[in-house]
Nucleic acid binder design. Structure first.
Length: 203
DNA sequence: ACCCAGGGTCATA
DNA sequence: TATGACCATGGG
């Protein structure tokens, strides 16, 4: 049998199916948009339980704001150590926090006025922000209609005999027509990603 | 002890 | 363009 083409995936059907199985999920769990940005960096190749510990330590140290992190010293690495790669991620957190100070993340910010492509490429220019992290921020902070083409989504569609191209960007490009076509809004896509991850964890 | 998680960078070919 | 080494902690 020839594998099905991702461009014809019915994402609404997938959404309804997973919602039926898993029930509603609340993604992205956070107290603020800035915390989502920080969490998106910290969770790279890292379990969420470890990230929660690091986020708690930052909040407890009153550092959960762009100024504190952008100008933090060597101790920043110690606060986030539970999330792994402390030296790398401390550098990344300073970089994205500087970006936030420059362009903003609230609805009246300069960044919010950019279209999806410009916003995405600007995020990708930040050290430590790759395609998946950029999409996390586009979806959960800027509320754009974005499909997170991560490993969980890959496994889901591979299990359904779809031909999923290698690499994040190739996968994303292949499913882009289905994202365009479907009637899911930004909040739906946010829930969809949560459902795909929760479903993936339990299978 | 071994494997991997809600990835990305950089050097190399 | 596409691999591979590297980054680091905690849970199974």
């Amino acid at each position: 049998m020839v594998d099905s083409d991702l461009q014809y995936v019915d994402l609404e059907e997938v959404f309804d199916e997973l919602l039926e199985i898993c029930g509603p999920t609340s993604w992205w769990p956070a107290d603020s948009d800035f915390e989502i940005v920080i969490g998106a960096i910290l969770t790279q190749n890292t379990r969420w339980e470890n990230v929660k510990s690091a986020l708690y330590r930052l909040k407890h140290a009153r550092m959960m704001d762009p100024e504190s992190i952008a100008y933090a010293g060597l101790d920043l690495a110690e606060f986030i150590r539970p999330a792994g790669y402390p030296n790398k991620k401390a550098t990344y957190l300073r970089a994205i926090s500087t970006w936030v100070l420059d362009y903003g993340i609230d609805e009246y910010s300069e960044a919010a006025s950019w279209n999806d492509d410009r916003l995405r490429s600007s995020l990708l220019s930040v050290r430590g922000v790759g395609p998946e992290t950029a999409d996390d921020i586009l979806l959960y902070v800027f509320h754009r209609r974005v499909f997170i083409a991560d490993m969980y989504a890959r496994r889901l569609f591979q299990a359904r005999d779809y031909d999923v191209p290698k690499g994040y960007e190739s996968f994303r490009k292949a499913i882009a027509p289905a994202v365009e076509e479907c009637s899911l809004n930004s909040d739906d896509f946010g829930m969809l990603h949560g459902l795909i991850v929760e479903y993936g964890k339990s299978h």
